[in-house]
Simulated assay, not measured.
Amino acid sequence: MTVRGLADAGTELGLCARSELPTTLAVADPGPDGTGYHFHLDETATFRLPDHTAQVERFAAVYVGGVAAVVEPAAGAVAATARAGAARSLLVVDPNVREDRTIDPPTASRLLRELCSLAHVVKASDEDLARLWPDTDPDESGRRLAAEGRLVVLTRGAKGATAFAGDAEPVSVPAVPVEVVNTIGAGDAFMAGVVNWLTTHGVAGSGAVAGLSREQVTRMLEFAARVAASVCAQAGTEPTRPPDN
């Protein structure tokens, strides 16, 4: 999305840095077993993140994860922001594990596990959790993370999503059926739906997350699933916000 598009959508751009460096290039490689990604990272603007930890308390939620969380010099800024977010806001982590020749897998996994340990909310795919904790079933990893006081949302693509909250019984919803045109960006759209639902319903901090009812968790998952489906049903990766339920 362009700067004009972001501004027209109501995004505040005051904290965005400007750089003469090129944008990072991510090349998607769709295949029968999922989409692979290849990144061109060296000397790109994406990884020159300024320190905005002092601004964290302005926001209802702070989201971190992805490639920027594991590639320096951005990784240090992401970690500092996550620590501040955990202390002053609602910290939401989507590890969004990516494998690439430019990324060191042991270091990346360690950094992403550390972010998950700080989070109030973790949204991860079953593939993410299998890569971060390879000796543990993704459902068991979700339960373990939730047992420490987190809301954990596990996405399974066409099989839907499951939320684990504390030691309560998990809540599952099916994927929204659509004629699939494109799956790239569906996970990010689902994440945006979760954050949007939580913040518009006044959920801030670990206490509020832990206090969500089963009905509220179900509504959140259904809303996020509809946001993800809006991406899958069209070319491109820009989601549509559905009516709340």
Rank of each mutant, 00 (worst) to 15 (best):
residue 74 A to K: 13
residue 233 A to R: 14
residue 3 V to M: 01
residue 223 F to H: 13
residue 216 Q to S: 08
residue 178 V to K: 12
residue 241 R to G: 02
residue 116 C to F: 04
residue 152 V to K: 01
residue 114 E to N: 12
residue 2 T to W: 03
residue 150 R to P: 02
residue 6 L to H: 10
residue 110 R to I: 00
residue 86 A to K: 07
residue 245 N to S: 14
residue 225 A to V: 01
residue 100 D to S: 08
residue 156 R to W: 03
residue 2 T to I: 02
residue 213 S to F: 07
residue 85 G to T: 09
residue 82 A to F: 11
residue 81 T to M: 12
residue 235 A to H: 13
residue 120 H to R: 04
residue 27 V to C: 03
residue 228 A to Q: 13
residue 178 V to Q: 09
residue 210 A to E: 06
residue 193 G to Y: 13
residue 140 E to W: 02
residue 158 A to L: 04
residue 180 V to M: 09
residue 187 G to Y: 08
residue 154 L to M: 14
residue 117 S to V: 02
residue 35 T to S: 06
residue 105 P to T: 04
residue 170 P to A: 10
residue 120 H to A: 02
residue 244 D to C: 03
residue 214 R to A: 15
residue 202 G to V: 04
residue 158 A to V: 10
residue 12 E to D: 15
residue 126 D to S: 03
residue 48 R to G: 00
residue 14 G to Q: 00
residue 24 T to D: 01
residue 156 R to D: 01
residue 149 G to C: 05
residue 86 A to P: 05
residue 209 V to H: 10
residue 233 A to E: 12
residue 62 V to Y: 07
residue 183 T to F: 05
residue 119 A to K: 14
residue 124 A to W: 06
residue 72 E to H: 13
residue 25 L to I: 14
residue 231 V to Q: 01
residue 144 R to H: 10
residue 242 P to K: 09
residue 127 E to G: 00
residue 111 L to A: 15
residue 227 V to L: 02
residue 208 A to S: 14
residue 86 A to G: 15
residue 71 V to K: 12
residue 6 L to W: 06
residue 210 A to P: 00
residue 227 V to M: 03
residue 123 K to H: 13
